[in-house]
Design a binder for these strands. Sequence first.
RNA 1: GCCCCCAUCGUCUAGAGGCCUAGGACGCUAGGUUCUCAUCCUAGUAACAUGGGUUCGAAUCCCGUUGGGGGCGCCA
Length: 438
Amino acid sequence: MNIRTRFAPSPTGHVHIGNIRAAIYNWLFARHEGGKFLLRIEDTDRERSTPEAVKTVLDAMAWLGLNYDEPPVYQSTTTQTHLAAAERLLKAGHAYKEDKGGTGQGECIVFKMPGTDMAFHDEIKGELKKAAADMKDFVIVRSNGTPVFHLANVVDDIHMSVTHIIRGDDHIENTYRHVALFQALGAPVPKYAHLPMIVNAQGKPYSKRDGAAYVGDFKEKGFLAEALFNYLALLGWSPGGDREVMSRDEMAKLFTFDRVQSSAAQFDVQKLEWMNGVYMRSLPREELIAGARAAMEKQGVWNDAIAPDYFARVIETLGERIHFFTDVADQAGYFFSDEYPYDEKAVQKRLKKEGALDSLRELRERFAALSDFTAAATEQALRKLAEEKGTGAGALVHPVRVAVSGRGEGPSLFHMLEVLGKDRVLKRVDAALARFAA
RNA sequence: GCCCCCAUCGUCUAGAGGCCUAGGACGCUAGGUUCUCAUCCUAGUAACAUGGGUUCGAAUCCCGUUGGGGGCGCCA
């Protein structure tokens, strides 16, 4: 059997994480089965479905690497097949016309439910059933002549030969209608897998109010696509055992419906952040550099005068302290400008301390005497002075750090000094000395 | 109101009758490494909603209860 899954978003301008997670599961399942993953844009809502909104969907797919195997199907181009299907249903007695109130002036077409109890096997939830009395006939073509979601969705799935429908479990009730439609249209009923919802701390559907909820939000915040993909895949699915950080190929290899949770999952940004850190740390140097630079350009703080070699050394020095690309500008701006702010608390604690400025002054002279300003050299000079003064190295390290960076924390001091260079270090120490002497 | 779905640490989960005095991860706490921060290492914290069954034995099977969620559109 040729497995065919599809992601069928309605372009609204945003792609919700719940939806993209459904897309991920569709993709994973198709890849696991060696089948095809398709994309259908349900752009029949002319109001919201602008070209930009469609682009948002396509961009999100591309960013996460959710490649589809056939050109996307735009629902706005398949309306005629929906209406033709409605005609067939009418002829076969599966639907009837009605004219009680509505949006248009004509008659609408109503699909007649079979009138029997219904049941279907859900790949995740198991046997699901519904009594005939609890199901009502429903409109499939509006009185203004346009097809309703249920009809369009089913007819397109038939034409696209979709074999597995993987979607949120808020669609369970719709499934009975859809199964009836497939049957009435004489088409094979696809298999269904209903995914549990992604909820917030209150157990309600996760929304924008709960924080970043759209794919674009995460991209903007600097999360890596691979990390978001991995995290989302694990939100409701587990490969079993202790495995968590995996490549998408590994996930595809391991993905099966029987390992998908049937209860809702709460979105936990902290864990996503941790996972992002794992991916961040494993990033090749070049990618880290490119990402950091791109972030700075976006933040408007990139300067073409920054030499590639210097930038590379800054990134190297910052190393694992970079959790997000934006951290470079946000936490290490002093590498790129002499106009850095002094953290008041750090100044109080390290520079306004008894004897701190005197020590700093002495250290400045030692540094000035250094012929080569390597990390090893500054470290040796600093430790020697500390020893002579009978203080711990920290009593000298901290004041210098605050003086040259304005911050109480940061990368290894000696490497930082080496990257900054002798001239700048001395100049900054002098400036700090003058500024905080009073 | 009616119908449907769901229920293991705060969170994501492992567990498919004995391997469970319930494992891992995130978080949190305490240590260690270190010039700070970050990383890393170690330890600790904390759960089978509840009541009945079934069984020699139940987190695992069945039923009820409670709680949470979803659906009842000429929206998608």
